[in-house]
């Protein structure tokens, strides 16, 4: 990752959403982006040049634009109409964003379009975030990483966030993903955690079926 005096930046054409520039680089604000917050909190799964990313919950394309600065190609999935317009505007100027207007709970419909990727990033506001992650294991190449943002308040607003995260980790067991580390995004985002998962091939397959 590119840091300039402790500030996370990315290298690309600026002015996407009014982001600040720092010596010609785009400042990537951890308060606005959970992925940025992940790196600020010590996340070590870097975005590598030449890598392929599947991004679920692309929203307005703000974070996607930074990801696209780092990697070879981003498959950006979003299923809401209003953000999709912004995402398309961003994708129109960045040749490595592939926008997919689809529902991440049902990957089968975009599966024929998405090759195997090195990194899965999931940031969706859905009560069943762990199940969505399970369903996307087949898209992850061997040795690939999944960063799953758990929005504890979207899962259950009344439960203790720590319990929600523990529950999600439990649900990922046997899915082909091994949770390596849990990073809380305080103070940048409240009640959000990133599960750092590795594709675990010990049970060779069957993850898609068990994901139901």
């Amino acid at each position: 990752m590119i840091w300039i005096e402790g500030v996370l930046v990315s290298r690309g054409e600026g002015g996407v959403y009014g982001e600040r520039m720092l010596s010609g680089h785009r400042v990537w604000d951890p308060y606005r982006s959970k992925l940025s917050a992940y790196y600020y909190r010590g996340g070590e799964r870097d975005l590598l040049p030449g890598s392929k990313v599947l991004y679920l919950g692309a929203a307005h394309g703000t974070t996607v634009s930074h990801v696209s600065d780092y990697v070879e190609v981003v498959y950006a999935v979003e299923n809401a109409y209003t953000p999709m317009r912004d995402l398309l505007a961003v994708a129109a100027r960045r040749k490595n964003i592939i926008p997919l207007f689809a529902d991440a709970t049902d990957p089968a419909c975009y599966a024929p379009l998405v090759e195997q990727v090195d990194l899965l990033f999931q940031d969706v506001a859905h009560p069943d975030q762990a199940r969505i992650a399970r369903r996307h294991v087949p898209f992850l190449a061997r040795g690939g990483t999944a960063l799953v943002v758990i929005k504890a308040r979207s899962v259950d607003a009344r439960k203790d966030p720590a319990d929600v995260v523990a529950g999600a980790c439990g649900e990922l067991e046997g899915s082909g993903l091994r949770v390596d580390r849990v990073l809380w995004l305080e103070p940048y985002h409240r009640d959000h955690a990133v599960l750092e998962c590795l594709r675990d091939d010990t049970p060779p397959q069957g993850s898609a079926q068990k994901g139901r």
Binding site: V73, L88, L100, L113
Partner: peptide
């Protein structure tokens, strides 16, 4: 590969937006 795939996906997304 990327260019053709991206053209296809942009077209599909624009079509859905236009429908909505």
């Amino acid at each position: 590969y990327i260019r053709i795939l991206r053209d296809l996906c942009m077209l599909r997304a624009e079509e859905v937006l236009a429908q909505v």
